[in-house]
Write a protein that binds this DNA or RNA. Structure first.
Lengths: 363, 363
DNA sequence: ACAAGTCTTGAGAACGCTCTCAAGATGCGC
DNA sequence: GCGCATCTTGAGAGCGTTCTCAAGACTTGT
């Protein structure tokens, strides 16, 4: 029925140009020893016939696969995922990776793996065997998952560990969490805050610790206390609500909170609103991540801008450039910036007689 | 140096189980005629060795590629893309596609193509040759791009056209834009609104027209006017600002606006705030898309929930199920719902003497 | 002008899989 | 128990590419 369009193969080009397969292959791959005249002739044939090498065949004969694999959690339903959209790393990472891969003639594939169970090894192993990617990108918390990193190292597949600075196989990349937290805290101190709390992420993420470190360092440098000013969440909204309430209950004099994720900080914003605290006049808020949602909250949140897309982009470039070797384990740091929006201001003046510039919000 | 782990091939399994390659292949692919006893033996070997067929090799020998390709605009920088995150279709589509592909043993790849110029043909052609995908997913406005659909039809590659209901090659899927707009408008009428404006999307998107149709139909059914109540934007924030201002300038008695994208509606929200109009008490707003950002605006927006992820999911399933044939061109409609949040309310009572329930917002 | 190189080109095998086709094993009807 | 049909198994070719290696063409130095 349908006219089956025969794919143009290297053989067609060879015949058309009157040369051998090998010569065409050399031209395509920029091989070194081809007479210019012949090369042009072959190129003309390639253009005329619209030849493009088949990735599958290339892979078969031992060349690269031109595939970079990004590992992600499975066990999320569509609804789950929709709920996390715009909130999560996934999309930013995808876009950074896809764009950069595309620019280098690579493709990015996302592999969903059940990272929690010990199926990891089997599932990931299967994906690696099937796809034979030229590189793998790991994001937290997978970057520090032994099972995963060992499997990759064993198979001799180059991989990037984002959000990990431990020595060992794989290219470590970080986003300057410690300095970012230090910067955010310092900014609040500069504004006059003296009670600055933090809602941290879960401890199995190294970056949670780094952020706490930066916060503490800034506090210490200014001679400010941090006892009882730390709460731990799981990056999700509900945990942020819980943490913010606990902090506010405990410290009546709290004037600023740094949240370790946009979700948690947004939750803190909600808690503040519920308690009649105006942000930023009564309470300043700084968030971590700077995903799109914080631009549209009321007020828009000041946030540490985690350069996720850029970091993934760097990771891809590293993987492509290094190829199969790569014992260089210098940590690559893509620094985070602070985007000041409207959730930060000087703290309210302490004397109760002194009225605020405006009404304290709804009761 | 590094112990190069030899990949487990079908040959290894064959030797291990003491059978021929062909038998292993049959077991792997669920071939029909294998003695149960032998099959179990082969399966045991497969498990023991951890054999997984190489996709590249499978593809080479004429089988499927197990790849679904999603076409997207190139010509976006990382910054561009970050700005659109959480706002755009891309991520929702990606996630729906990736998840569904994964469930069926397929993979989704995103191909960035310069869809505007006439490079399309060359770029897309190259991608198709290189990847040889089993199916392609087109989103608006590519779904209606002749150059693209023709190329795909010519090559005999199954493809889905999301947001298109025109006859022709490819599986058409829509998201009930007409009824969704009708529903949204009816809801506003029900609340008592009589002046309901729409900020539509650009006309090269069929769905823009469908939404206008639904809006008009609801208005007509209620005997309400629509003259001068339509503005056209480009889905972007700036165009929403322009459109909202124009509408508000023109009609002092306007009490509701339907925006054809979250960005545009958020812009309208901002314009309302600037003019001292409280949402929803002075002005009701309904948005289209329901991307994550509208949950966190103040107030959260009532929105038509475009089931993008679900639609892409359906598209993937169709492509996988149909395989190479597919002359069934019945339009598949995944209906959109309306998520009511806090940007809709009855219109203010017309008599100027009647005070609102609260202050009219900042000047 | 001749030997010893370097460039250029091509022939053939190999990659891991599935397809086609033929041969052997097994079942059925009488 | 024999002939035929059906099941089961395997051998070999082929998919489109790159790799290895060898042969021929062209330099260069003397």
């Amino acid at each position: 029925m349908a006219r089956v369009r025969k794919t143009v193969t290297i053989r067609d080009v060879a015949e058309d140009a009157g040369v051998s397969l090998q010569t065409v292959s050399r031209v395509v791959n920029g091989g070194p020893n081809v007479r210019p005249q012949l090369r042009d002739k072959v190129r003309a044939s390639i253009d005329r016939l619209g030849y493009v090498p088949s990735l599958a065949a290339q892979r078969m004969s031992g060349s690269r696969s031109y595939i970079i694999l990004a590992i992600n959690d499975r066990e999320r339903t569509l609804a789950d995922w929709r709920a996390r959209l715009g909130t999560d790393w996934v999309d930013q990472m995808l876009l950074g990776g896809i764009l950069t891969c595309s620019q280098h003639g690579y493709r990015m594939m996302v592999e969903l793996v059940d990272t929690h169970s010990d199926h990891v090894e089997r599932e990931l192993g299967a994906a690696l065997s099937a796809l034979q990617p030229d590189g793998v990108i790991l994001t937290p918390p997978h970057s520090e998952n032994r099972l995963i990193t060992q499997l990759l190292a064993e198979r001799n597949i180059p991989f990037a560990r984002i959000g990990s600075n431990a020595p060992g196989p794989g290219i470590p990349l970080t986003m300057g969490d410690e300095s970012a937290a230090h910067l955010a805290t310092s900014r609040l101190i500069e504004l006059g805050h003296r009670r600055i709390a933090m809602i941290a992420g879960p401890s199995q993420y190294s970056l949670s610790g780094w952020r706490i470190d930066g916060w503490k360092r800034a506090l210490d440098e200014a001679g400010l206390p941090h006892d009882g000013l730390l709460e731990v969440g799981d990056f999700g909204y509900a945990s942020g609500t819980r943490a913010a309430r606990a902090l506010l209950d405990r410290h009546a004099d709290l004037t600023a909170i740094i949240g370790s994720s946009d979700q948690m900080t947004l939750a803190a914003l909600e808690v503040a609103r519920d308690r009649g605290l105006a942000v930023p006049h009564d309470l300043s808020l700084i968030s971590f991540d700077n995903t799109p949602i914080v631009r549209f909250s009321q007020p828009p949140l000041t946030a540490v801008d985690q350069p996720i897309a850029e970091t993934v982009s760097r990771a891809v470039e590293q993987l492509i450039a290094r190829g199969p070797d790569g014992d260089d384990d210098a940590v690559i740091e893509v620094p985070a910036g602070l985007v000041e929006r409207s959730s930060t201001a000087p703290p309210p003046v302490e004397a109760p007689a002194q009225a605020h510039a405006h009404a304290p919000g709804r009761a």
